[in-house]
Amino acid sequence: MISSAVDPVQLEEVRKRVFLALFIALAVALHAVEYLLPSPLPWFRFGLANILTLTALFLYGVRAAWVVTLCRILIGSLLLGTLFSPAFLLSMSGGILATLLMTSSFRFFRPRIGPVGVSVLGALGHASGQLLIAWLLIVRHPSIWLMLPFFLLFSLISGIINGLAADMLLEFLLKHPAFSRLKNSCRFSVENNDTGSL
């Protein structure tokens, strides 16, 4: 698995790029499937793509998380035909606020906070960001804030679910040799239950 003929630092860089590309592709796929699912409440989405943002954040750091989120929103909107539409603005504003909250909570609280905590903050930020832009640009009447509690409740639940899924994904990925170098630098608590990859 580890090639001895290649500079390990370079190898790690390339690996990171490849995996980020995979994460983005998965995130776009999840985003698209969610968008296409019929639902009586059209604006309430689970945001499953955030699972990949969280994974990128915990594995590769703040910048990687931003890359995954922004690319996911742009490519996803392009694919779904909503690029630059009002729905895109809502998605963008929610995504930016969510990622801001996630990356800052990650940076400041890192050893103590885990994927679930970061995810919940991200989900709540997403909902608030969307309502904020909807209020400023579309509805323009304070009555829209009456929907805030329902959105927040839904975000809380989906945030917890996404966080748990991301945690499980991280745990699963970190067991693979491709991520062995990251074990010590990324996670909030590392259970070294396998003997190593080399």
């Binding site: 906070i113 885990g114 679930v116 905590g117 499980m168 745990e171 909030f188 608590s189």
Partner: peptide
């Protein structure tokens, strides 16, 4: 996963 939830979380 649930066991791994930190107190802060």
């Amino acid at each position: 996963t649930l066991k791994r939830l930190t107190r802060f979380d």
